[in-house]
Simulated assay, not measured.
Amino acid sequence: MTLLHWHYPTEILVGENASSQLVSVCQTSSIQRPLFVIDSSLANTQAIQSILTACEEASLTTDIFDSFEGNPTGEQVESGNTAFLEGKHDGIIAIGGGSSLDIGKAIALVAQQKQSLWEFEDIGDNWKQADSTLIAPVIALPTTAGTGSEVGRASVITDTQSQCKRIIFHPKMLPTHVILDPTLTVDLPAHLTAATGLDALSHNLEAYCSPSYHPMAEAIAIEGMRLIKLYLPIAYTDGTNLQARTQMLIASSMGATAFQKGLGAMHALAHTLGARYNLHHGLLNAVLMPYVLCANRHYLHEKMQRLSHYLELEKEGFDGVLEWVLGLRKQLHVPHSLSELGINNQEQEVIASQALKDAAASGNPIHLSQEQYQAVFNFALNGKLDL
Results as ranks from 00 to 15, higher is better:
Ala130Gly: 07
Ile64Ser: 02
Lys315Gln: 13
Met266Trp: 07
Gly104Tyr: 08
Ala270Lys: 06
Thr144Trp: 01
Thr257Ala: 15
Leu52Tyr: 13
Tyr231Gly: 04
Ser162Asn: 14
Leu232Thr: 03
His298Gln: 15
Leu332Gln: 05
Tyr299Lys: 14
Arg153Ile: 06
Ile157Arg: 14
Met216Thr: 09
Thr28Val: 12
His177Gly: 05
Val325Pro: 10
Ser353Asn: 08
Asn17Gly: 09
Pro171Leu: 10
Asp199Leu: 06
Ser40Phe: 07
His203Trp: 07
Leu311Glu: 06
Leu242Ile: 00
Val14Ser: 10
Ala265Thr: 15
Thr193Pro: 00
Ala106Phe: 11
Gln374Glu: 11
Arg245Asp: 02
Asn345Glu: 15
Lys357Ile: 02
Ser369Trp: 01
Leu4His: 13
Ala270Ser: 14
Ala18Glu: 05
Asn44Glu: 15
Leu184Asp: 01
Ala140Pro: 08
Leu60Ser: 08
Val156Trp: 10
Arg33Gly: 01
Thr183Tyr: 04
Gln49Ala: 13
Lys384Trp: 03
Asn204Gln: 02
Leu13Trp: 11
Glu349Arg: 11
Ala221Met: 12
Gly255Ala: 08
Ala359Pro: 07
Gln161Leu: 13
Ile93Tyr: 05
Phe120Cys: 08
Ala145Gly: 11
Leu368Gln: 01
Gly74Glu: 13
Leu227Trp: 09
Leu188Thr: 03
Leu311Thr: 00
Gly317Pro: 03
Ala207Phe: 11
Asp319Thr: 04
Ala352Asn: 01
Gln32Asp: 13
Asn345Met: 04
Ser202Glu: 03
Thr147Ser: 13
Tyr373Asp: 00
Leu288Phe: 01
Val178Tyr: 03
Leu184Asn: 03
Ile107Glu: 10
Val292Cys: 13
Glu323Tyr: 06
Leu4Ile: 13
Glu86Trp: 06
Leu117Gly: 02
Ala275Leu: 11
Ile48Thr: 01
Ile107Asp: 10
Ala145Tyr: 00
Ile351Trp: 04
Gln129Ala: 12
Ala235Gln: 04
Ala286Gln: 03
Gly239Tyr: 02
His281Pro: 09
Met225His: 12
Glu371Pro: 01
Ala217Cys: 14
Thr144Tyr: 03
Arg329Val: 05
Ala111Ser: 15
Ala83Ser: 10
Leu101Pro: 10
Phe169Glu: 02
Thr61Glu: 14
Gly96Trp: 05
Ala140Cys: 03
Val151Glu: 09
Ser308Asn: 03
Met254Lys: 12
Val77Met: 08
Ala94Asn: 08
Leu385Thr: 04
Thr133Asn: 15
Phe120Tyr: 15
Ile168Ser: 01
Thr257Trp: 00
Gly282Gln: 06
Ser19Asn: 09
Leu4Glu: 14
Arg226Leu: 15
Ala256Phe: 04
Thr143Lys: 01
Arg306Cys: 11
Lys114Thr: 14
Ser30Tyr: 12
Met248Leu: 15
Lys88Gly: 14
Ala286Leu: 04
Gly239Trp: 03
Pro137Cys: 10
His280Phe: 03
